[in-house]
Design a binder for these strands. Structure first.
Lengths: 144, 144
DNA sequence: TTTTAGATTTAGACTAAGTCTAAGATCTTC
DNA sequence: GAAGATCTTAGACTTAGTCTAAATCTAAAA
């Protein structure tokens, strides 16, 4: 059940406030993870975040990284972007926007807002409500 | 390098023609896989296709299923739809359309064509060309 | 028709992202 | 501080997908 905090600039709030506003109980590990994750807008994998958080001495386990990213995603604080079966990014900017993925370089690039499609409730399958709308446009380097 | 055969009704062509038109050498295994895959419009996983093809006695190996689906995707005959890290569908209808994914039921549902966004070359990152544009809208069952 | 070289297929080992388990730690409230 | 809930953890486990190296197939040359 994703909330939609429309957190265009939540990165400026203390992470404690971000979490409590979404009804997330603040723990030491969640604070550490949130500090690392929301320090800036970034596209990061679970593994990269694990490394970042434990850079000097282990502080948070792999299971907690996954649990916490899942929790944050449920609450709408981060967005999961599934590129393929073995590449999932977490986007610390959860505001409404989408992505270009360069298959040659592996870069994930933000899409300009005007390119984002809108889906109305009436467009959805009967009896459903929207959770997330993800657009990934795969591009490759132009061959001259 | 995905081609775009715009194969709205390639399912009516003999599979041999579909493959040769895309420059794919026809082998026994590729014919078996293509027959099963393009018999109808379907969203199917690699594993399901492996089971379908080998229903009575083994005919095609797992490696060949993956290799062939990858080849067909490269040539634009099927579309890969990445739902999450452990769920990838192959869509035997490769024509331009997108999907709703119901997280409660696991159903993947075709999106009406008018909802499909368009991306112009000028919208893409500099020096890149579009490969595929995938839209997956995640929905959940409405709670009354 | 045999040879040859390249392409294809295969079994099964392997990889790695992510999940699970069950025990321990931590917090809340009485 | 005891009870009970929630959270964290190490490390085992699962599983989709990849890799490898040998065997097979194909087309066409000799």
């Amino acid at each position: 059940m994703a909330q939609d905090p429309h957190n265009h600039s939540q990165k400026n709030k203390p992470v404690e406030q971000m979490l409590t506003e979404q009804g997330i109980f603040v723990t030491a590990q969640r604070r550490i993870i949130a500090e690392a994750l929301f320090a800036r807008n970034q596209h990061i994998t679970a593994d990269q975040l694990l490394g970042l958080v434990n850079k000097n001495s282990a502080k948070v386990s792999k299971a907690t990284i996954y649990n916490t990213l899942g929790l944050f995603a449920d609450k709408g604080l981060v967005r999961e972007i599934h590129i393929n079966a073995s590449k999932t990014f977490y986007d610390s900017n959860a505001s409404r926007h989408h992505h270009f993925y360069n298959v040659d370089t592996g870069d994930l690039i933000d899409m300009k807002e005007r390119l984002v499609p809108l889906f109305l409730q009436s467009d959805l399958p009967d009896g459903t409500v929207m959770e997330t709308a993800d657009v990934v446009v795969r591009v490759r380097n132009q061959t001259l």
